[in-house]
Design a binder for these strands. Structure first.
Lengths: 144, 144
DNA sequence: GTATACTGGTTGCGATTACAACGATTTGTG
DNA sequence: CACAAATCGTTGTAATCGCAACCAGTATAC
């Protein structure tokens, strides 16, 4: 799993650099393109990533002109993130990067095996989410 | 995959800390316990990790008294890494950590599904290894 | 209404990692 | 042999991430 993850990081970083985008923001922009107008806290929860990391990543995307942030009117603590037209124009490129990644990683897999792999990984991810608090804080758990 | 990997890192880091061992060295010590007397360069290759990272991790394990390093007599550039008795005494603890990890991650999986997941992940890891150089250096590839 | 607790976001800090440059050693070529 | 190229390990540097402390804004308790 570690090897695959490092492979993914290097691949996506190289492709993002090629597109002139922040190196580590691929998963985030991929997610934002379908879950628009989401709060940073929700993003942290979706990825199980520290909220500070999310804040910095979103800030970089904003610098790159890919997203805009606006304060939620009903709860002014919340900042909502929306993708810009510039980001939407990159959808074909981003799709291509994801397609090539899948081809590399799933090289030699039958369609059935691809589906199996995806289903099993999703269940592992669910387990990770379910046991997350156990790892982070054995007692006084917090909600997310 | 990213979520699962972060989950793994946090889980193993917490358990290693509990055992009084270097936080990020679980995969390495796990590997060393069955591939003893291996060079640092081979370790880097097995994990697809930068050799500098390997050097620092092994150095920490040495500080903790879990491994010893000796210069290969036939090729004095090479340092071979061997686990100490102290490390071998920790095998039951380390096994327990790995067992608990598998239970958490594979919660609700049937035996058949566990085997499927392992087989599919191993094939993905092979693909990662096979395509590694493509990502790192599209042209002038190096051997590892 | 006021004090207190909680929530979302930002920032400082330490730890980790990849990349690159380097030294020591070995191998290859003439 | 002599010199160039390659290999293994170490170290400097920059980027990234998790944790914790903090601030502004909101909800809860009294």
């Amino acid at each position: 799993m570690g090897m695959i993850h490092r492979f993914a990081r290097r691949y996506f970083a190289a492709e993002m650099k090629r597109l002139g985008l922040p190196a580590t923001a691929f998963p985030l922009i991929w997610w934002l393109l379908r879950r628009d107008d989401i709060s940073q806290d929700e993003l942290s929860g979706d990825f199980l990533v520290d909220k500070g990391t999310t804040a910095r990543k979103v800030a970089k995307l904003e610098e790159a002109g890919l997203v805009e942030r606006s304060v939620d009117q009903e709860d002014r603590r919340i900042k909502r993130v929306r993708v810009t037209d510039k980001a939407r124009q990159l959808v074909p490129d981003i799709r291509a990067v994801m397609r090539e990644w899948n081809e590399k990683l799933l090289d030699g897999f039958s369609e059935e095996e691809k589906e199996q792999a995806l289903a099993l990984l999703e269940r592992m991810a669910e387990n990770a989410r379910a046991h997350w608090e156990d790892v982070v804080e054995p007692r006084s758990r917090k909600r997310r």
